[in-house]
């Protein structure tokens, strides 16, 4: 049995209705997607997030939107990010930023000290925070901290909420109050649409003004699947619930096996172990996890929560390696 537990994907296929909707989107592949479907999707996303659909911009993958925000706003602002954070965006910021300040969060609590960030706001800044953080799975930003940032005239705050449905924590409710806030979301994770790539940005007024000409064409299968998924979110919520229960089980079992498990508010778990070549040994048995030493710390591994049977294979291999 092989198990890919390294990409933070949802192990469950989307509901059959959603798959059929995607397939319907293939019927007119020679044509661009129709505008009315884009409007419908934005309307549904507005309802889902309790915001005006005018505040929403769509893209294939939320990382594209994060990059666009960096392109638009980093010219005369410094970027402030947490390290580690979602690596593709962190690398892009390193390339594009006119100035970049990283604030390192450290084991074992991976806490972001609010004062360290607030101290940096004496000049125009674009702050990008993934909340919960990837790869630690930790919530870094609380309401009070976010409001302190947003009340500073120099600050633009972009919160990446790719794992919102798992964490239940969002700042979308502040979007009408703060023009300098944007929230990035994806349907890749909880909605099981990673293969179709649907990301969106919920924008405060300042961001909205700069995104008016952002191209919005999406692939029709993506549009149709996303619309169907939002019409009935019950199957998504059921999958999120199942993943949550499996995560709790894995956390307990891994801890019992002597693995250091860090509390996560996502669909993945960060662990630390001294077992040599841990990821390599699991891969030899068909289980792929993310070895964080490639881009961050040695001995740390990120494991996506898989299907129960995949998780069982992982757990039995871990126990074997420890013994």
């Amino acid at each position: 049995m092989t198990a890919n537990l390294h990409m933070n994907e949802n192990p469950y296929l989307p509901d059959e209705k959603i798959r059929r909707a995607a397939a319907r989107g293939l019927e007119n592949l020679n044509r661009y997607s129709e505008w009315k479907y884009l409007i419908e999707l934005k309307t549904l996303l507005g309802e889902y997030n309790h915001v005006s659909s005018e505040r929403i911009v769509l893209s294939h993958g939320s990382d594209m939107l994060l990059r666009e925000v960096i392109n638009i706003f980093s010219g005369n602002r410094k970027i402030i990010m947490v390290s580690p954070s979602f690596f593709p965006v962190a690398h892009y910021a390193l390339k594009q930023a006119s100035r970049l300040t990283k604030i390192q969060i450290s084991p074992s609590d991976f806490r972001l000290n609010p004062q360290l960030l607030l101290n940096e706001l004496d000049e125009p800044a674009l702050i990008i925070i993934d909340n919960p953080n990837n790869p630690t799975g930790k919530i870094l930003l609380e309401n009070g901290f976010a409001e302190k940032i947003l009340q500073n005239k120099n600050a633009l705050l972009l919160v990446d909420e790719a794992y919102f449905e798992f964490s239940g924590r969002t700042f979308a409710g502040m979007i009408d109050k703060y023009p300098n806030l944007a929230v990035a979301r994806t349907m890749d994770k909880a909605f099981s649409l990673a293969g179709l790539r649907l990301g969106y940005l919920i924008m405060g007024d300042y961001f909205k003004d700069h995104f008016s000409d952002f191209p919005a064409y999406l692939a029709t299968p993506t549009l149709f699947a996303a619309i169907e998924a939002l019409r009935n979110t019950e199957s998504m919520m059921a999958n999120v619930d199942k993943i949550g229960r499996e995560k709790a089980r894995m956390e307990i079992e891994l801890s019992k096996a002597g693995i250091h498990v860090f509390q996560s508010s996502t669909n993945f778990i960060l662990i630390k172990t001294k077992i040599p070549d841990f990821a390599k040994k699991l891969k030899e048995e068909g289980v792929v996890i993310k070895d964080m030493s490639g881009e961050w710390l040695a001995g740390y591994y990120r494991i996506s929560v898989g299907l129960p049977e995949e998780n069982n294979v992982l757990l039995s291999l871990v126990k074997k390696l420890i013994n």
């Binding site: 390290s83 390193l94 930023a97 006119s98 100035r99 970049l100 300040t101 990283k102 604030i103 390192q104 450290s106 360290l116």
Partner: peptide, 11 residues
């Protein structure tokens, strides 16, 4: 100091 335009705050 990590580069001409980059810095990291660390404990």
């Amino acid at each position: 100091i990590t580069g001409i335009k980059t810095e990291t705050i660390i404990e």
